[in-house]
């Protein structure tokens, strides 16, 4: 089973490849080489907003989420990840009651 995360990166414009690379680097830093091998996919990446939908398996979700939180620097500059929404169903990332317009 997979978890889908809607996340955005707060630092500067980066490409999808660098985005994924930075996530791997932060996992490696926090949980080491063994955890750096966990499989995850960048399902969709929007370069204008630096926002992506990332897919990760349920067993690795905790470690993944942990290393996103603890990612502090990108190329020497402070950075952060904002997790907008997480769901095991991709469709529910589309909207919720907060954004619902009557």
């Amino acid at each position: 089973m997979y978890y889908y995360l809607d996340i955005s990166f707060v630092n500067q414009d980066i490409t999808a490849a660098l985005f994924k690379n930075h996530i791997i680097t932060s996992i490696k830093h926090v949980f080491g080489e063994i955890a750096a091998a966990i499989p995850f996919d960048v399902v969709k990446y929007d370069p204008s907003e630096i926002r992506a939908i990332v897919r990760v398996t349920q067993d690795h979700y905790v470690k993944f989420r942990g290393s996103l939180t603890l990612a502090g620097y990108y190329q020497g500059k402070p950075c952060a990840y904002i997790v907008h929404k997480v769901s095991p169903l991709l469709l529910s990332l589309l909207g919720d009651s907060r954004t619902y317009v009557h």
Partner: peptide, 10 residues
Amino acid sequence: KIQELHGDFG
């Protein structure tokens, strides 16, 4: 070695 393979957490 643990720092290398299990990171800061390990």
